[in-house]
Write a protein that binds this DNA or RNA. Structure first.
Lengths: 138, 138
DNA sequence: GTGTTTGCAAAGAATTTGCAACGAA
DNA sequence: TTCGTTGCAAATTCTTTGCAAACAC
């Protein structure tokens, strides 16, 4: 990671420990929507003494600063997305892989709804089967 | 619940125990998107010996038969929706209440995506603030 | 030096499982 | 009678918390 980037995070009030650096490097450009466990498994290789608390702690700190999104997409498990640009997802109902969709859908809610609800953002989720799983189905 | 409805569930292979009846009656027309705990708390009043296992067991049986939907909308918790018609949701980011949206948005995914992914359904989620919470915010 | 972060272990929340007893059909 | 369902308790999975030691700045 570049010094500029480290400095950027520091200015956001994040103390840049080696563990955090490893987590940030893992997340950078990562489109796999990793769970806390995925992140832990990866960073653990570099820091065998890592604890889950540190992973959650860091993810919380990043979330608070708007640097990552927490996705509630898989039941019973949080997933994290370092891409905070508005985008959508396709989810395979069989293998639970998540794919990004970068399209602007302009979904407009009728006034009937917006009257009593102030929309901040909207996300479209497509459920279906990914290529691999289509082939596995009979 | 009408005898016809009970017969209908029976024909789907569901043994209609009193506990299941109570769960089904609670879910019927329910738009609050209850969690397993919500359902348990309610049915417990009628059947104090109820166990969570029965709630989850019944919900799983209903889900398998396409009678309810499992929503992954709140982190770390499943919610259930007895309305299986395609519809969308608005979620208050403050109080986590979920509201139904019955509109047909016709969100079309470009071929670039559908080439490798067979879409079965799509759900739009609007995040924002409900009326009540707007008033509470300063 | 100061105050945050780490690692550990224990606690907590949500869900699942094993199994004997029960009960719907 | 049969086989699926219930209730209970224990086990799992995911996440959070408390606290002393470590460390970033």
């Amino acid at each position: 990671m570049t010094k500029e980037k480290i400095e950027y995070y520091r200015k956001l009030g994040l103390k840049m420990t080696p563990q955090r650096l490893a987590i940030l490097e893992y997340l950078e450009g990562n489109t796999s929507h990793p769970s806390a466990e995925d992140i832990f498994r990866h960073v653990e290789e570099k820091f065998p003494s890592m604890s889950f608390a540190t992973v959650y702690n860091t993810l919380e700190a990043l979330k608070e600063r708007g640097l990552i999104l927490e996705l509630s997409i898989e039941p019973g498990k949080k997933r994290f997305d370092p891409n905070t640009e508005p985008h959508h997802h396709m989810i395979c109902e069989r293998c639970h892989k998540i794919f990004d969709v970068f399209e602007d859908f302009a979904v407009n809610l009728p006034e009937k709804y917006t009257k009593d609800f102030k929309v901040k953002r909207c996300e479209v989720v497509f459920y279906g089967l990914c290529k691999e799983c289509q082939e596995k189905e009979v």
